[in-house]
Write a protein that binds this DNA or RNA. Structure first.
Lengths: 145, 145
DNA sequence: TTGAATATGAAATTCATTCTCATGATATAG
DNA sequence: CTATATCATGAGAATGAATTTCATATTCAA
């Protein structure tokens, strides 16, 4: 986090209490947060922080490469730290639970495919949607709920 | 398209001139259209059609499974016919060009991964972002730009 | 043709995100 | 420490995509 502050300073930015609190809560929190969720968590510490500042902070961190923007097609963006290893996501369409996975074979196939099409790949988004073990037991019957 | 009308009728829906025109233009058009783009095309034929009806039509077709909703993170949704074979997308971050590809090995790895995590996969979204051959120099070896 | 139901277009609404702007905080020079 | 220039903030306004409302028009069956 000091590193981030240094990078911001190098760009002519200044530190701020609000931003420090937002970053701290964000990096300590679970993954895949929406701005709204993060704002609520941050306000527990400091009631005065507005969501505009949370948006600004996440955008800044995203530009600096410390945060990844996720979009699972819910109409809201989610954010996660990019300090952890690269991974893709599994999204349960029943309960909304998001799991992570890493599959190097998929990664390299993507590289291969991109090259075949003359693309220089810079990133990708892969989300697999389905029903998680808890929501849809392989047993007979349709577990509604 | 008759089949679609029949299915709508079976649900208690009625036919309509506007919807027929929208469907016709949509299925004859190129892929990956936004509602705005489609509305413009449709209005060439019938100036009176409003975008609300285009939204409604695409939502209906989506529910019936004839249309797939795409989201490349642009802040706008795009739509494509789901009558063509399944495929994923390559998006050029320079010119916006979207290409399609199919890679069965990626598909089966996704199945495998989902199962390992106890998920019953129903669909996935995979988009690879990068620079297409026209926008970027032909990537020699690993030279990243 | 009538009548009950669905569909439409325009405008209003919703909701996430961004922007504006007056004020507050921060860093640096003196 | 204080001045001052600049950046950051928070509240609310603005934006823009998508949805809904509502009065009217269209469809379809009898």
């Amino acid at each position: 986090m000091r590193r981030i502050d240094a990078e911001i300073a190098a760009e002519g930015g200044k530190r701020s209490r609000s931003r420090a609190q937002i970053m701290e809560v964000f990096f300590r929190s679970g993954r895949h947060l929406t701005v709204d969720e993060l704002t609520r968590k941050v306000r527990v510490r400091n009631r005065n922080i507005g969501s505009a500042t949370v948006y600004r902070t996440l955008k800044l961190l995203s530009r600096l490469g410390y945060v990844k923007e996720l979009d699972f097609g819910e109409g809201v963006k989610r954010y996660e730290s990019s300090l952890t290893a690269h991974h893709d996501h599994l999204v349960c369409t029943e309960c909304g639970k998001v799991s992570e996975f890493e599959e190097p074979r998929i990664e390299s196939l993507q590289e291969e495919v991109a090259r075949e099409h003359g693309f220089s790949p810079t990133m990708h988004r892969l989300a697999i949607y389905g029903v998680c073990g808890r929501c849809g037991p392989p047993a007979t019957g349709k577990g509604e709920e």
